[in-house]
Design a protein around this nucleic acid. Structure first.
Length: 583
RNA sequence: GCCCUUGUAGCUCAAUGGACAGAGCAGCAGCCUUCUAAGCUGUUGGUUGCAGGUUCGAAUCCUGUCAAGGGCGCCA
């Protein structure tokens, strides 16, 4: 933002160091942690520690250097004052200039503020990955939300992004479902809620499989028939798979997710078996059939001990496994696209598995194997550390949660905005409900477990999406009443309130926050920033009258509100949360 | 047994190796003739699991230890 000034400053500091025989270390600048006045700060401890002429303890010497430097620098253009405190050199920006630059920059870029155009090779993000014939619960939600947000953030940071969904449309779970359906529910068709109906039947099939030996045997036989491409089974499979896919489409539509490419497990099953043959031929895999499965003993091949373990790539009966299909999928991805990085958003329990797949691809000689990255996230549990399991009946279904949250939000909207049409009310309630469900899953670190509880999920107060959405609504409300679309170059030539300064500071930080979140693949950084931004905006809202301020101040503050609205909408969008105009 | 993750206020979580460790919820006391109170103000609450080490400086990095969760040959 102040590049020229910063460069001039760096030159002066370098000269200062040279004159005193100090190592020419560049100072590390950071924000000053005190709010209400802004600028940049540098600790002088490293320089003090490296000073050969130092005779007092480092902190004391750092303070001495800071003071010397302050005197040496004198008055600098663009900065209002310089101070030396506890070993830090603090430079304060000149408020009117800084404020104007920031607000103008935001307004000039609009929705594009803080984002860059996509250049270079693409980054692929694989996420959601639902299994057909199974219910969708809150646990699946974290994956979708996280993956979608990461894709958004990467895109905003200047990457080309390819969103990919890998659908588990085949495997033991599907065979179980089909076998159970044919035996006990022949000819039945799904009820209104297809996903739920499919899920209920899955739970039933899963129970039979676990507790009835005869059923298990039937399922195995059924799998063999699938393998032999029994036309009857293929037909049934296609039909039932479509039911699931229709249900998924509804959910993605509601959540606002879209994909550039959908891969099906079924499309890589045959290629996977070919890869297995190839691995056996090359000697990497050991074929123990018919008694034993086909395995790759990675530890033996690599000389490691209990690190990569053994990976099973084909069952002893020749049917495929998850690992059978993972290698051809990776090959397909890198064949279809020119990728810089291939990110897999998959829960942490599959860490070893992903590590094995990567290593197998590496051993097969694919140079891009190192560009595979497993983004591991922790699962969503229920209170008391109960894992969601459809078999145990310990799940919170997505449908139920969204419906309940929307109803609660609708009550509040009706109460607050009785003049709106039912359609408008519904749209707002949905935006609020989905936001409040999504936000807690994004605001934690990926590696931290999320415990779901109803009370929390339906709380629209405090650190939550509605809080941020509400700040956006307030900004929007002011602008609507002002009736302004265009803004003159704002003049902040009055005494700025601390809350105004804090707000402007956060607006200025937005681009860096996006970059950092993209680099670290952490939507939590954006989620927490969004809350900070909303909080600071609410402070401003309470302390600084806009519409009733005297003309010069009113104009500047309106521009600031417009800039804040843009940024609030921006961060919400990155999180996959809608920013309503009214609520 | 081997490996991974987590441990911060009563609860849920923040904190690019840097200044007094911050929010929300819960509790208590207040604020709607003033741009929407899904908001705001004040207040209570801490030996950052424990012990060492590295560093001018550690919640953050390293080692050990304790606790919780997860993974480890035919589920995905």
């Amino acid at each position: 933002m102040f590049d020229q000034e910063k460069q001039a400053l760096a030159d002066k500091i370098e000269k200062f160091c040279q004159e005193r025989g100090l190592p020419a270390k560049s100072l590390e600048w950071r924000d000053i942690p005190f709010r209400g006045e802004w600028g940049m700060a540098a600790p002088l401890f490293p320089l003090a520690a490296a000073d050969p002429n130092r005779q007092v303890p480092v902190p004391q010497h750092a303070q001495f250097l800071a003071e010397s430097l302050r005197t040496y620098l004198g008055d600098l253009p663009g900065f209002s004052r310089i101070e030396a405190v506890r070993g830090y050199l603090n430079l304060y920006f000149s408020p009117p200039e800084y404020a104007q630059k920031v607000v103008q920059l935001v307004l000039a870029n609009g929705e594009g503020y803080g984002t860059r155009q996509g250049t270079g090779k693409a980054t692929m993000v694989e996420y959601s990955n639902p299994n057909t014939h199974k219910p969708l619960h809150v646990g699946h939600l974290r994956n979708v939300i996280l993956g979608g947000s990461i894709a958004n953030i990467l895109e905003a940071s200047g990457k080309k992004v390819i969103r990919v969904n890998y659908i588990g449309d085949i495997g033991l779970h599907v065979i179980k479902w089909l076998c159970n359906y044919e035996k006990y529910h022949q000819g039945e068709t799904p009820s209104e809620d297809k996903t739920r109906w499919m899920g209920d039947l899955f739970a039933e099939a899963d129970r039979r499989f676990a507790y009835e030996d005869s059923f298990e045997a039937e399922v195995r036989a059924y799998f063999a028939r699938w393998d032999a491409r029994d036309p009857h089974i293929l037909e049934l499979w296609k039909q039932t798979r479509d039911w699931s896919m229709e249900g998924f489409a509804q959910v993605y539509d509601l959540l606002g997710e879209r994909f550039d490419r959908i891969y099906f497990e079924s499309e890589v099953e045959e290629p996977g078996k070919a890869v297995v043959e190839q691995l056996i031929k090359s000697g990497l895999a050991h074929d123990g059939r018919p008694e034993e499965p086909v395995i790759i003993n990675l530890d033996e091949l690599l000389g490691t001990k209990e690190e990569y373990r053994v990976v099973i790539i084909l069952r002893s009966d020749g049917t495929s496994l998850y690992a059978t299909k993972e290698t051809p999928l990776a090959i397909l991805k890198f064949t279809e696209y020119d990728l810089d990085q291939s990110i897999y958003v998959i829960d942490v329990r599959q860490s070893l598995h992903m590590k094995q797949i990567r290593k197998v691809l590496e051993l097969m000689g694919y140079p891009w194997a190192e560009h595979i990255y497993h983004l591991a996230y922790e699962i969503v549990n229920l209170p008391g550390n109960v894992t969601m399991s459809s078999r145990e009946g310990t799940v919170v279904l997505l449908d139920d949660l969204i419906r309940e949250a929307t109803n609660r939000a609708l009550e509040i909207v009706r109460d607050k905005n009785p003049e709106l049409s039912p359609q408008e009310m519904q749209a707002i309630a949905e935006a609020v409900a989905l936001g409040s469900i999504k936000y807690p899953m994004l605001a934690r670190e990926n590696t931290k477990m999320v415990t779901f509880d109803w009370e929390n999920a339906l709380d629209f107060n405090g650190q939550s999406a509605p809080y941020i959405q509400y700040a956006h609504v307030r900004a929007n409300s002011i602008l609507r009443k002002a009736g302004m679309e265009q803004f003159e170059v704002p003049q902040f030539s009055y005494a700025l309130q601390p809350s105004e300064i804090n707000l402007i500071e956060l607006l200025a930080r937005l681009p860096d926050e996006i970059q950092r979140a993209a680099k670290e693949l952490k939507p939590s950084l954006v989620a927490n920033f969004a809350y900070d931004l909303a909080k600071v905006f609410n402070d401003f809202y309470n302390q600084c009258p806009v519409l009733n301020a005297e003309p010069a101040i009113r104009e500047a503050r309106l521009a600031l509100v417009a800039a804040a609205r843009i940024c609030l909408a921006k961060v919400l969008t990155l999180l996959g949360i809608r920013a309503p105009e009214v609520m």
